[in-house]
């Protein structure tokens, strides 16, 4: 009974909010209407303009995720494994992580231009730290006995990293993959919003520039659906790759 009740109440809530928004008599200039937003999305789908922008945003996010993860993994392994490097660099990394990343966006626009790469750079600064911190923790918190056991079986330093450190860190990274994917998309969209010639963030900023509230809401709605879909995909990949993990709870 409860299993059915919860989704019913959830759907009811969404419908109530949408109905209130549609028929509540709010100023359409500021708040638009669900029907207009839906109409706009249909129009974008029909003339195909949205796909190009969505493609740009997803490319930027994908590249940021790839580069940020690779960099975070390598630096995390190095600093976690080589005590000297860890001691020297971890205060710097903490300081960089404390920096609000949005302030870097103008610099990246100057350095990398209005194209894809300034957004990728911005996304990388967000993804890198999530992956780095998880790898660093993952490597340092590997149980001593696992390392000793592998060494007694004859493992070299490279084999230790491959068989023990990396898988241990990977389990932490996958646990934070939802966060990384979200950050990569945030990086892309915020970067586009601040200055771009294409992408979902650009679409939203264009709509804002022409006081087109409906367009802003439509952009937000599309992004939300995309993030949910990507998150679902990440969940599937995670379940496959972390099959060895005991169920929590």
């Amino acid at each position: 009974m409860r299993r059915l009740l919860i989704p019913l109440v959830q759907i009811g809530l969404v419908l109530a909010v949408l109905a209130n928004w549609e028929f509540g008599g709010y100023d359409e200039f500021f708040f638009s209407k669900p029907s207009s937003v839906l109409g706009r999305i249909e129009q974008w789908l029909a003339d195909g303009t949205m796909w190009a922008d969505l493609g740009v945003t997803l490319t930027e996010a994908g590249l940021a995720l790839l580069i940020g993860t690779a960099a975070g993994l390598v630096v995390g392994l190095a600093l976690g494994r080589v005590k000297f490097l860890g001691a020297v660099f971890s205060p710097f990394i903490k300081a960089l992580n404390a920096l609000p990343r949005v302030v870097l966006a103008p610099l990246f626009l100057l350095w990398f231009g209005l194209g894809v790469w300034s957004k990728v750079a911005f996304g990388v600064t967000l993804v890198f730290f999530v992956v780095f911190l998880n790898t660093y923790q993952g490597v340092r918190q590997v149980r001593r006995a696992l390392v000793d056991n592998a060494r007694m079986l004859g493992a070299t330093e490279t084999q230790l990293v491959r068989h023990v450190m990396l898988p241990s860190a990977l389990s932490w990274i996958f646990a934070s993959l939802h966060l990384s994917v979200g950050f990569a998309l945030v990086g892309a969209v915020v970067g586009e919003y601040l200055g771009a010639a294409a992408g979902m963030g650009y679409l939203i900023s264009q709509a804002q520039g022409t006081l087109d509230t409906t367009g802003v809401f439509a952009g937000i709605a599309v992004l939300t659906v995309v993030v949910l879909l990507v998150d679902f995909g990440v969940g599937l990949v995670e379940r496959e790759l972390l099959r060895w993990k005991p169920e929590e709870q």
Partner: peptide, 12 residues
Amino acid sequence: GYLFQQDTLLPW
């Protein structure tokens, strides 16, 4: 060869 007191199997 060393058989440890702790659990040393790689969980993955």
